[in-house]
């Protein structure tokens, strides 16, 4: 588990056993993957393989997907490299019994690092490019050339911080992070409408209200810390946040700014505890299968495990509202930068 989470556990007198298991499993997967991909496709090219999702957040379970992108840094002279990279990813998934993303969705394809940065907010910044960019930023982990991923994040942050007021949090970044969070929520509703089948609804609903919400919160925390802790080098600070600190560990950093506020520390404790309970829920194949069998509306579901997590997601929302809008350390910044 990341040192920020461990430090928070000490401060909050908390144990996070499911997240510890997930972190250990995730780290082992990342290390093995790096050895495998370096051996398969080498390093003498401009490609990186970046994995998002629960592996990137260090919350991986046996049922997690391997959602990868092949990120091209500049022109790659030997075009067969693209196919080699994707074949290597398929082989990895087969050997590890991991579901691969296929080629028709967001992942399992080649993207240009330059385009993802250049088109921020412009007419060709679609839901897909926004999603890929923010996922690469918030939860991406390189399994081939980590220094290239760090460079990509650094350049992206440079774009977000260009011409920004040095005093406050990075507003352009906050706007795009918030835009992505609203996009996820709207996308969920759109798919409920479009898809005639409710297959998998329950798990999608819980993931939206817990893990995806927490990933959004984690990016907000990093941005607000720029204003709260005033690092000398904002770009370097944020680069370290998004490259080296997993999402939940970024949230755990709030212990640094909530010193002495027992109510807020209690809310933070509950947030992390709920995250751990959800990790345990996702590690249980029977619970996952039960959640996938649920059908909307949510109020009609009586399956105990799902009901418990639904109530936990309600509690999470309440804790986050108190943390960001009642806690003296955060409320002024939240009111100014997280609303209008």
């Amino acid at each position: 588990m990341h040192e920020f989470l461990e430090a928070a556990c000490d401060v909050l007198d908390l144990e996070l056993p499911a997240l510890e298991r997930a972190a250990a499993f995730s780290q082992e997967q990342v290390q093995e993957a790096r050895r495998f991909f370096r051996d398969r496709i080498g390093l003498d090219h401009g490609l990186d393989i970046v994995v998002c999702g629960s592996l990137g957040r260090r919350e991986m379970s046996a049922a997690s997907d391997f959602d990868y992108l092949v990120v091209a840094h500049g022109l790659v002279e030997d075009v067969t490299r693209f196919r080699s990279a994707r074949l290597a990813c398929d082989e990895w998934c087969t050997r590890r019994s991991l579901p691969s993303p296929g080629t028709t969705g967001l992942f399992g394809r080649v993207v240009s690092a330059t385009e993802l940065v250049e088109q921020i907010g412009l007419e060709f910044d679609t839901n897909a490019s926004l999603t890929r960019r923010l996922l690469l930023l918030e939860e991406g982990v390189s399994v081939l050339q980590p220094e290239k991923h760090q460079q990509f994040v650094n350049v992206m942050l440079g774009r977000y911080l260009l011409e920004e007021d040095a005093g406050g949090p990075p507003w352009f970044l906050l706007n795009d992070v918030t835009r992505y969070w609203r996009t996820i929520a709207v996308d969920y509703q759109a798919k409920v409408w479009r898809d005639l089948s409710d297959d998998g609804w329950g798990l999608r609903w819980l993931k939206l209200r817990i893990s995806r919400k927490l990933t959004f919160v984690s990016a907000v925390v990093s941005a607000l810390l720029v204003a709260l802790e005033a690092p000398d080098d904002r770009r370097a600070f944020l680069c370290e946040q998004f490259v080296d600190v997993p999402a939940l560990a970024r949230v755990a950093q709030l212990t640094r700014v909530l010193d002495g506020d027992e109510q807020a520390l209690g809310d933070l404790r509950d947030v992390l505890s709920i995250a751990d309970r959800f990790a345990a829920y996702l590690q249980d194949k029977e619970q996952r299968a039960a959640a996938r069998r649920m059908r909307p509306p949510v109020g009609a579901v009586v399956e105990p495990g799902f009901v418990e997590m639904r109530e936990a997601s309600d509690a999470l929302q309440a804790c986050l509202e108190r943390l960001f809008f009642d806690a003296p350390a955060l409320r002024d910044l939240s009111r100014r930068y997280l609303t209008f």
């Binding site: 082992e28 093995e32 379970s61 046996a62 049922a63 050997r95 590890r96 019994s97 590690q283 996952r288």
Partner: peptide, 15 residues
């Protein structure tokens, strides 16, 4: 099964 050992663990962890 054509898997690495942790792949077997992943296989056993899902339906």
């Amino acid at each position: 099964l054509g898997l690495v050992p942790v792949g077997l663990d992943a296989l056993m962890g899902r339906y």
